[in-house]
Amino acid sequence: MTTILFLLALLALALAWWGKRHLSIAVALVSIVIGAAWFWHHVTSAIKVDL
């Protein structure tokens, strides 16, 4: 999963270089959202949380 997230980050950099500003921002946001979701899964599966 982390490898895919780094690939998305690399894609975002490449899109910025090629002049695709909005697409680059969108890919970066997708990467952050997937990373946050994966992180949340990691937290909740590791410990019993009571919010």
Partner: peptide, 19 residues
């Protein structure tokens, strides 16, 4: 794995200044 996510955040943090 958490260290890798922190690295990812550092990379994505540079996207704003690069843009």
């Amino acid at each position: 794995p958490l260290c890798l996510l922190q690295r990812l955040a550092f990379v994505l943090m540079t996207l704003g200044p690069l843009l």
